[in-house]
Computed example of a mutant assay.
Amino acid sequence: MTERPRADARRNRARILAVAEDEVAAHGPDASLEQIARVAGVGSATVRRHFPTRRALLEAVSRSQMEALCGRARGLGGDGGGRSALVEWLADVVAHSASARGLVAALAFEGAEPGQEDGCAAMMEEAVEPLLRRAVREGAVAADVTVADLVTLVVGAVLATEHHPDPVAAADRVFRLAVAGIGPPGGRWSGAR
């Protein structure tokens, strides 16, 4: 039987998380853990006890957004063609990641802690896998495309445009260019001559 945390520990965690959400929104994924502790009225050791790494804190901050996005992916499971459902959902992830500072850092596979199966990247993998499999079955996406490829595409588009005056629009444009290719509409570009 798992022991339930004490009431004061639950309150501290909730307070730290609320402050972290504000700090990450204001300063991005590099928000100061010491500032979060100060504003929450706890010591930095308390922050680290609840969130042992910066990534753990970012994932906790991003969890509700990722849960909503994953719910949307499940809702797209039967709508339209496989490729359009997959692209529509990935475009939503790009838009949310470009506007919600910290989410893209929580999605990035690089630096993920081993054994962290319930993180944002793992949630995304579980949500997008059925959409990807369907698009591959329909022949609308290459069979060798992986979820890791799609996460890298999202992360890359968002990080490449994060300092743009309108990062959401810029990330969406880069993402859609990558998905469509750079050839003319209706044309085929092989890249080889």
Rank of each mutant, 00 (worst) to 15 (best):
S84G: 08
E113T: 13
G186C: 08
D144S: 11
A14W: 02
G187T: 05
V19A: 05
G102D: 02
G77M: 08
S99D: 12
R4N: 12
G81R: 09
A31Q: 02
D8W: 10
R6M: 12
S62D: 00
V136G: 03
A121G: 07
R38V: 12
R83Y: 09
R133L: 14
A180H: 14
A56Y: 01
L86N: 04
P185F: 00
L132F: 00
G111C: 07
L153E: 07
A142K: 10
R38M: 12
P165D: 10
E117T: 13
A108W: 04
Q116C: 13
G183Y: 01
S84Y: 03
T46V: 13
F175H: 06
G191M: 08
G181E: 05
A98W: 01
N12C: 08
A127C: 06
R63H: 11
R137L: 11
R15H: 10
Q35L: 15
L58I: 05
P185D: 08
A31I: 04
L132E: 01
S64R: 14
D144T: 10
D8Q: 14
A135P: 03
G75H: 09
L103A: 01
R176Q: 15
R173Q: 15
E34D: 15
A112G: 13
D149Y: 08
A95M: 07
V168R: 13
Q35I: 11
A9K: 12
V94E: 00
R13L: 05
P130I: 06
A91T: 14
A40L: 04
R176P: 05
G75M: 09
D79Q: 14
T53P: 04
A100G: 10
A106S: 13
G71A: 12
W189K: 11
V47L: 09
L69M: 08
R101M: 02
L58T: 05
L177K: 11
W189I: 10
I16E: 03
S32W: 06
G183L: 00
R74C: 10
I36V: 15
H164R: 08
A98I: 08
Q116L: 12
